[in-house]
C-alpha cells in the first residue's frame, strides 16, 4: 500500500509541478550536490532481536534479494547468522550504514546516511530475526527519489524467509538468545529453496514439541517500522 500511495502521490505532485510551470518567477532548478536521510528503525516484535541492521543506498541495478529467486550466499549468511558484512561487500563503493549493535524488541535505532551520488536513490536495509532459523526483515530497493526535503515516509516491513535452512526450530539451529545455536551453515535444506515471506515460528507452546522456541518468539507482520526523512 505504501508504494501505491507513493505512486499516486507522485502523480499528484507532477500535476502540481505542471500547474506551476507557467509562473513567471520560476526558480532555476539547482542540481543538489548531496542528499542526506535520517532513518529510524523500530523493532515491532515481541522477542525477536534484530541482528545489527545494515543499510545501503544504491541505484536500480542491484537487489539484495528477490522473492522467488534463490538467496545469494551473502544473504544466507545474514539470514542464518545475522552477519550482513558480505551483503555490504557486494556494493563496495556505495553509501552504507552498519549498526554495531543488535536492535532489541521495542527499541529504535536512528542514523543519518548521506550520499553525493544522485543515482543512489534507493534504500535497502536488512537484519535477521535472530530467534529463527533463517528469517529476516527489511526493505528492498525502496525508491527515495520522490521524497522532498523535510518529507517523511514510513514503511512497515514484512518478515522474509531466505529459503536456505529448514524452519526446524530444533535446539542448536538458532543463533539467537532463545537457543544459542548455530548461525550460518552453507548446506541448504529448506522445503522451498527461494526467498519468500516467512510463515512465522510454531514454537513448543503451539504444539511443536521439538521446538526450542516458546510462544515469546512468535511474531506477525509487520516486523519493523522504518521512518525515512529527507534532510
Amino acid at each position: 500500500m505504501n508504494q501505491s500511495f507513493k505512486s499516486l502521490l507522485g502523480g499528484v505532485l507532477s500535476l502540481t509541478l505542471v500547474a506551476c510551470s507557467n509562473d513567471d518567477d520560476d526558480e532555476m532548478m539547482m542540481e543538489p550536490e548531496s542528499q542526506a536521510y535520517r532513518i529510524k528503525i523500530t523493532n515491532l516484535t515481541h522477542f525477536q532481536p534484530l541482528s545489527p541492521p545494515a543499510a545501503v543506498l544504491h541505484d536500480d541495478s542491484s537487489h539484495w534479494w528477490m522473492i522467488g529467486s534463490a538467496a545469494s550466499e551473502a544473504l544466507e549468511k545474514m539470514a542464518e547468522g545475522g552477519d550482513a558484512s558480505d551483503l555490504l561487500a557486494l556494493l563496495p563503493d556505495n553509501t552504507r550504514h552498519a549498526a554495531s549493535d543488535v536492535l532489541l524488541p521495542g527499541m529504535s535505532h536512528e542514523f543519518t546516511i548521506e550520499t553525493d551520488d544522485m543515482d543512489e536513490n534507493r534504500l535497502s536495509l536488512v537484519g535477521m530475526l535472530v530467534n529463527t532459523n533463517d528469517a529476516f526483515s527489511g526493505i528492498n530497493g525502496l525508491e527515495l527519489g520522490g521524497l522532498q526535503s523535510g518529507q517523511t515516509e514510513v514503511v512497515y516491513t514484512h518478515a522474509y524467509d531466505a529459503g536456505t535452512e529448514m524452519n526446524s526450530e530444533a535446539a542448536g539451529t538458532i543463533p539467537g538468545p532463545a537457543d544459542g545455536g548455530e548461525g550460518f551453515n552453507a548446506a541448504r535444506d529448506d522445503v522451498t529453496s527461494v526467498v519468500t515471506m516467512h510463515p512465522g515460528v510454531v514454537s513448543a507452546d503451539d504444539g511443536l514439541t521439538t521446538s526450542t522456541l516458546s510462544a515469546g518468539e512468535k511474531f506477525d507482520n509487520p516486523t519493523l517500522r522504518i521512518e525515512i526523512t529527507a534532510l
Binding site: H158, A159, N167, M197, P199, G200, G207, L208, D220, N221
Partner: peptide, 13 residues
C-alpha cells in the same frame, strides 16, 4: 505440517 503450511498475511503481491 505446522512448520511448512502456515502463513502470515499478506499471501500475495
Amino acid at each position: 505440517a505446522s512448520r511448512v503450511h502456515r502463513w502470515l498475511n499478506p499471501v500475495a503481491k
